[in-house]
């Protein structure tokens, strides 16, 4: 009750679910960059994940739970925080916070929309049915072919690049927030975690956009 209703309790929930999601995007990026090693590498990686069987579903449920809880409390807290300031001053000059921190709910909702599109694109396979070519006899598809063909047009590439811009914003504020919220920061460490936060956000941004951009530029091809 305390945890799900109090101000600090919900902040802790946001931090813990948030760090799970950051951990996921980091691991996801590591796995995805195997596409640069070659078709065999990323297909072997996909095969490995596929072979985990029911564990994949346990993992997916945990991620889904973290995702839904993070979004639910994020929206709820934002509504409360807006209500706490019914009328702003005519002049408002911020001294410390930034665009990323002030637009967390917007970048968050854009990422939600992106994740839905991304799942339709590569997991549920709705948007581009022509990019799936069966491989082997266990219902697998050629992941390398799927990704390369999925990024031949400029539009999906643009969507991914823009969405990763929002991921950059979200993580740059969110990661350091985790340490502050769990009481793991002090006056000495906070500036450091804030810089690490931005660094991780930049690495995620460059890492993720490199895949669609290098494909559409023709540097990674079938």
């Amino acid at each position: 009750m305390q945890l799900t209703q109090s101000s600090v309790g919900r902040k802790i929930i946001m931090a813990v679910t948030g760090i799970v999601l950051v951990a996921f995007v980091c691991v996801h990026l590591l796995g995805n960059t195997s596409i640069f090693v070659g078709a065999d590498a990323i297909n072997a990686y996909a095969q490995k994940l596929h072979s985990l069987g029911p564990l994949v579903w346990v993992f997916r449920l945990v991620m889904l739970a973290a995702f839904v809880i993070h979004i639910f409390f994020g929206i709820q807290l934002t509504i409360e925080n807006k209500a706490a300031t019914p009328e702003a001053n005519v002049q408002v000059k911020r001294q410390k916070t930034g665009f990323a921190a002030e637009t967390m709910v917007i970048s968050g909702l854009v990422l939600l929309a992106f994740v839905i599109y991304h799942l339709l694109h590569f997991t549920v396979r709705v948007t581009n049915p022509e990019i799936y070519v069966p491989m082997g006899d266990q219902g697998m598809v050629d992941v390398y072919y799927m990704v390369v063909m999925g990024f031949q047009a400029v539009l999906p590439v643009a969507v991914y690049v823009v969405a990763m811009g929002f991921l950059f914003l979200h993580v740059s504020h969110g990661f350091q927030s985790f340490f502050q919220t769990l009481g793991l920061s002090n006056d000495k460490s906070l500036p450091i975690t804030m810089n690490i936060s931005k660094l991780i956000a930049v690495v995620l941004l460059l890492g993720y956009i490199s895949i669609p951009v290098l494909i559409v530029a023709g540097l990674v091809k079938i």
Partner: peptide
């Protein structure tokens, strides 16, 4: 919370 103050989201504007 009961006095209608909002929730902290680590903007750090307060310290400034």
């Amino acid at each position: 919370k009961e006095s209608d103050f909002g929730n902290c989201t680590n903007h750090y504007e307060c310290q400034a």
